[in-house]
Simulated assay, not measured.
Amino acid sequence: MRGIGMLISAMAAAVGGCIAEMCREQKYFQVTKYMFQTEKVSSASGKIKIVFLSDQHNKVYGNKNKILYESVKAEKPDLILIGGDMLIGKKGVLAEPALDFVRRLPLICPVYYANGNHEQRMKERTAYFGNTYHEYKERLLKAGVHFLENETVHLKIKGTALCISGLELPLYTYKKFQTFPIKKEDIRKRIGTAARDELQILLAHNPAFSEIYKEWGADLVLAGHLHGGLVRVPGFRGIITPQLKLFPKYSGEMRKDKNQAVIVSRGLGMHTIKIRLFNKAEVVSVCLYGPDGKNHL
């Protein structure tokens, strides 16, 4: 009986510890740094720093997100890319927390914003959401934020040519318990053919189709949506997605495949399912460099 009691006590302590850790992780974020070497970055460019933000869901860190803003600024990025779901697409929920943060980012460097499913449903379902999304977008446009809604922009940073595309797939591709046969032709119909000579970066909110994104021709995929898999097995991967899929291949890490890479942000906030365990929220900082770029790091 004593052994059973000790086991129950140990289990209770473990559960209590996990609950305490979940509460702690919901208050903080980290800066996760990745490095991606590619021949498409000019050796003369040295390093190119990109900060990638996703899934803020109106989360606030410090007074008016000062802590979050200063952390982004401290990275000294050449470019800030946003992968969507910065607000919460729910009727009656204000977009102000996300708006107040994002509209300050162009003070740091150029900002490009691709929508997630929350922005997209607000945009497409105006009969329900009204003009909330359009007002949000207009205010960010005035602040200098560039939106990529099935659009592509060509940039040159430090002598390296970048092609950045923002992809919006149909909203039904986000449905739970279903798999959709997305093909590279579907992507081409929306944003055209991938760049060959430029470094092709694809902002695609849903990482479920990452293999197709790579087949389409993306050199670097930046995604989010899965909130890190809610609970992560340290050193392995996320356990479950908000869509209730187990052990997703891409959930909150960087995976390289020859000359291509997929980076999935664990996000900055939460909404309906407010669980994080061994899965701290994050700002993603990506250092791009060419064949001889390590000499400049």
Score class of each variant (00 low, 15 high):
Met1Cys: 10
Gly5His: 08
Met6Asn: 09
Ile8Ala: 13
Ile8Glu: 07
Ile8Trp: 06
Ala10Tyr: 15
Met11Trp: 14
Ala12Trp: 03
Gly17Val: 09
Met22Trp: 04
Cys23Tyr: 12
Arg24Pro: 07
Glu25Asp: 12
Lys27Gly: 14
Tyr28Asn: 13
Phe29Thr: 14
Gln30Glu: 12
Val31Asn: 15
Lys33His: 10
Met35Ile: 11
Ser42Ala: 04
Ser45Phe: 03
Gly46Ala: 14
Lys47Thr: 15
Lys47Ala: 14
Lys49Ser: 14
Lys49Arg: 13
His57Arg: 03
Lys59Thr: 02
Lys59Asn: 01
Asn63Ile: 08
Lys64Met: 03
Tyr69Ser: 04
Tyr69Leu: 06
Ser71Arg: 09
Val72Pro: 12
Val72Gly: 05
Ala74Gly: 04
Pro77Gly: 04
Asp78Thr: 12
Leu79Trp: 12
Ile80Val: 11
Leu87Met: 06
Gly89Asp: 01
Gly92Asn: 05
Gly92Gln: 04
Ala95Glu: 06
Pro97Ala: 11
Leu99Val: 07
Leu99Gly: 00
Arg104Thr: 11
Arg104Trp: 03
Pro106Val: 06
Ile108Phe: 07
Pro110His: 07
Asn115Ala: 01
Gly116Trp: 00
Gly116Tyr: 01
Asn117Tyr: 00
Asn117Ser: 00
Glu119Ser: 05
Lys123Ala: 04
Lys123Pro: 05
Glu124Lys: 14
Glu124Tyr: 13
Arg125Tyr: 12
Thr126Ser: 08
Thr126Arg: 15
Ala127Met: 10
Tyr128Thr: 15
Gly130Ser: 11
Thr132Leu: 08
His134Glu: 04
Ala143Gly: 12
His146Cys: 10
His146Pro: 02
His146Leu: 13
Phe147Ile: 15
Leu148Glu: 09
Glu149Ile: 13
Glu151Ala: 15
Lys156Ser: 03
Ile157Gln: 09
Lys158Thr: 05
Ala161Pro: 01
Ile164Ala: 05
Ser165His: 02
Gly166Glu: 00
Glu168Ile: 03
Pro170Asp: 02
Thr173Gln: 02
Thr173Tyr: 13
Lys176Trp: 04
Phe177Ala: 03
Pro181Ile: 13
Lys183Asn: 14
Lys184Trp: 04
Asp186Ala: 11
Ile187Trp: 10
Arg188Asn: 11
Lys189Ser: 08
Gly192Cys: 09
Thr193Arg: 04
Ala195Thr: 09
Arg196His: 09
Asp197Cys: 10
Glu198Lys: 13
Gln200Cys: 02
Gln200Arg: 05
Leu202Gly: 12
His205Glu: 01
Phe209His: 00
Ser210Glu: 00
Ser210His: 01
Leu220His: 01
Val221Phe: 02
Val221Asp: 06
Ala223Cys: 08
Ala223Ile: 07
Leu226Arg: 05
Arg232Thr: 09
Val233Lys: 07
Gly235Ala: 11
Phe236Cys: 09
Phe236Glu: 10
Thr241Pro: 06
Gln243Phe: 08
Gln243Tyr: 04
Gln243Glu: 10
Gln243Val: 09
Gln243Leu: 08
Leu244Cys: 13
Leu244Ser: 09
Phe247Lys: 06
Phe247Arg: 10
Tyr250Ile: 08
Gly252Val: 08
Gly252Lys: 14
Arg255Lys: 12
Lys256Trp: 02
Gln260Tyr: 06
Gln260Glu: 06
Val264Leu: 04
Ser265Val: 03
Arg266Phe: 03
Gly267Asp: 00
Gly267Tyr: 02
Gly267Thr: 10
Thr272Asn: 11
Ile273Phe: 02
Lys274Trp: 06
Phe278His: 15
Ala281Asp: 11
Val283Phe: 14
Ser285Asn: 07
Val286Asn: 03
Gly290Ile: 10
Asn295Glu: 15
Leu297Glu: 14
